[in-house]
Simulated scan of single mutants.
Amino acid sequence: MSGASFRYLVKEGFRNTWTNRMMSVASICVLLSCLVLIGSASMIFLNINSLVQKIEDENVIMVYVDDEATDADIDEMGIQLNKINNVQKIEFVAKEDAWAEQIATMDEAQAEFFTETTDEIPLPDAYKVTVKDLTKFSDTVKKIKKLDHVYTVRQNTDLAKKLAKLSNGISIISIVIIAVLFAISLFIISNTIKLTVYSRRLEISIMKSVGATNSFVQLPFVVEGIILGVVAGALSLFAVWGIYELAISRFSDVFSSIGLVPLNFVDYALPMLGIFVAIGIVSGVGGSLITMRKYLTKEGSEISAV
């Protein structure tokens, strides 16, 4: 195919999109609806995952240091904790700071009583350890307990296991739902394009009768599919954005009550736009090619019979 023919077919794709604008609008609306569902589901799962991540970050291991440990021993323990593979970060909590925080949580009378009657701080120094992978939580605790000068370890293994399962479940559910919605969008857009092809079967028949190749016939439809995909992807982004901001404003009290800080949509706008446009193009072009292949393979029957 020459460059002139290619440019001609691309122009035909743009012209046909406008000429058949009612079908184009219908295709865009169908694809937009599916993409809005995909985008909305994605933002819901991202926020849920953010909440789970927040709970995971708070599910730390408290490693209390033996009172007989020297400053050098405490520093060495910090070094050994950082060497454990599954440890993401550690934070030293001095017993003076921990005791001050404990006093701050008491009412005035209790705080005064403990301050006056306590000569020595009844708390040990400690390390707050955050892990990377909750599925390895138990193994990490076992390694920590083997370190020197560890007085005791406070942790919640059951919660860690539940959070790990919840996180994996959310990932699996989100992938399945998005995949199902994508398959539905491909099916619907394919059927919508099928109507377009059917309404233009005479045009296709004439092109085939004068010797046009399959690629020559298909290219304008492919261009139409790309145009519809790009337009639907861009419109879907703004639609999801609007719905998301509206939901945040309406349910702000609910989010506050469960300690959820909604994600900033702007941070995900550009990747989502790219994904939407990609899905739109794949759906549009895929639907066009699937439908056109079906009709072109029936040359001499349905098409030539028109």
Rank of each mutant, 00 (worst) to 15 (best):
L9I: 02
F14H: 07
R21N: 09
V25P: 00
S27Y: 01
L37W: 06
I38Y: 07
S42Y: 14
M43Y: 04
F45S: 02
L46T: 08
L46G: 02
S50R: 15
E56W: 01
E56H: 06
E56V: 00
D57L: 07
V60I: 08
I61L: 05
Y64L: 09
V65G: 00
D66E: 13
D67Y: 14
D73S: 04
G78Y: 07
L81E: 02
N86A: 04
K89P: 00
I90T: 13
V93R: 15
W99Y: 15
Q102M: 13
E108G: 04
Q110C: 07
T115L: 14
T117F: 13
Y127L: 05
K132W: 06
K132D: 07
F137G: 01
D139M: 08
K142Q: 13
H149V: 00
Y151A: 12
T152K: 15
A160C: 03
K165V: 11
I170N: 11
I172Y: 11
I172F: 12
A179T: 06
V180L: 14
L181Q: 08
F182D: 03
L195Y: 02
L195N: 09
S199P: 02
I206M: 10
M207G: 01
F216P: 00
P220N: 07
F221L: 05
I226M: 03
I226N: 01
I227S: 01
G229I: 03
G229M: 09
V230S: 06
L235W: 08
G242T: 07
L246N: 10
S249R: 15
S249W: 08
R250C: 02
R250V: 05
L260N: 07
P262N: 13
F265R: 12
V266H: 12
L270R: 09
P271V: 10
M272W: 10
I275G: 03
F276Q: 10
G286W: 03
G286Q: 05
L289V: 07
I303M: 14
